[in-house]
């Protein structure tokens, strides 16, 4: 079937979300089976944010992430087999077996590093925006972070800097209402993260983080403004993480409300929602159904690649502590 530009874009958005979902479900299984040992934080339920924001970016725009960044890596075009090899601790991994799930990198795709120290990459994104400005380049920098990260000073200091210097930075807060076992309500008096933008002097927009098209459109607008020199923007994308803080477990024992929250949020599945929308807009069910087997094939190929890849050699321990001289 021939699909128009908008429909094709929607379809590729759906494909990326499905990829993130199925990769993380597969990683979850491999963690349960003991084959993957590095801590893996799954973003299942939150896929629309990574996919929606990255759909608004070009390859040279940079993306910065945290401990829960498989989705950011994949949506920005990071190589799936290399990510899988990394979580398997293989030398063919994107970080050569030094990083595991919490330290992903894909420089050629504008992803210069995701790290698990909460909030750590927010100021780094500001720096990338600063470089764009000084070099008169049109590239935008995107910081992905959670609601927990907004409790660090980094966040507020970074918003202020970016606003003051009118830097092309998108601050994307994935508000999933939890930081480990702690619900948002136990950590701040008001559900008002988005208002931090106002205090810093930039627009703050609250988006339905489970609506991929709304996220994409919100990000597209913010990116256009940043490229035009209008400065940064804070997008608060409200969502929910289905699985526990780390690993595939559901963490139902954490907080009295997890069960009822899941009952509320799982019907808002971002993937089903987008799929329904695309069908309403005329895409064929068969066409969309064909996505899943193809994606599963890619994932199994990545797992095979990871399994068959060599482990790092222990004599290699000292490599990469310092980079070669670069004048």
């Amino acid at each position: 079937m021939q699909v128009g530009g908008a429909a094709a874009a929607g379809r590729s958005l759906l494909r990326i979300m499905l990829l993130i979902r199925l990769v993380e479900e597969r990683i979850g299984e491999l963690v349960s089976a003991g084959e993957i040992k590095t801590p893996c934080h799954l973003s299942i339920g939150q896929e629309a944010i990574a996919a929606g924001v990255c759909a608004a970016l070009s390859r040279q725009d940079t993306v910065w992430g945290g401990h829960r960044s498989h989705g950011h890596y994949l949506a920005k075009g990071g190589d799936l087999p290399e990510m899988m090899a990394e979580v398997f601790g293989r030398v063919t991994g994107c970080s050569k077996g030094r990083g595991g799930s919490m330290h992903l990198v894909a420089p050629a795709q504008g992803l210069y590093g995701t790290v698990p120290l909460v909030g750590a990459t927010i100021p780094l994104a500001v720096g990338a925006g600063l470089a764009s400005k000084l070099r008169h380049e049109p590239h935008v920098a995107v910081a992905f972070f959670g609601d927990g990260a907004t409790e660090e000073g980094h966040f507020h200091e970074s918003l202020n800097l970016a606003a003051l210097y009118r830097l092309p930075v998108l601050f994307v807060c994935e508000n999933n209402f939890y930081s480990t076992h702690m619900p948002l309500s136990a950590r701040r008096l008001k559900d008002n993260i988005v208002q931090a933008a106002d205090a810093a002097g930039m627009p703050g927009i609250r988006l339905d983080g489970n609506d991929a098209l709304a996220v994409r459109d919100g990000a597209t607008q913010a990116v256009a403004q940043a490229r035009a020199g209008a400065g940064p923007c804070l997008l608060e994308c409200r969502t929910y993480r289905w699985r526990g803080h780390v690993g595939p477990a559901w963490d139902l024992e954490v907080g009295e409300r997890r069960r009822s929250e899941l009952d509320e949020w799982m019907p808002k599945d971002p993937i089903l929602r987008l799929r329904r929308r695309l069908i309403e807009e005329g895409l064929s069910v068969e066409d969309l159904d064909a996505l899943e087997p193809a994606v599963r094939g890619e994932i199994e190929a990545a797992v095979t690649f990871a399994r068959e890849s060599p482990l790092p050699d222990d004599s290699d321990l000292f490599r990469h502590v310092y980079a070669p001289r670069r004048t």
Partner: peptide
């Protein structure tokens, strides 16, 4: 050794 802690188990053992 003067190296950041690696992740891969083989490198951890060497570390």
């Amino acid at each position: 050794p003067d190296v950041p802690a690696p992740t891969s188990a083989v490198l951890e053992q060497a570390y």
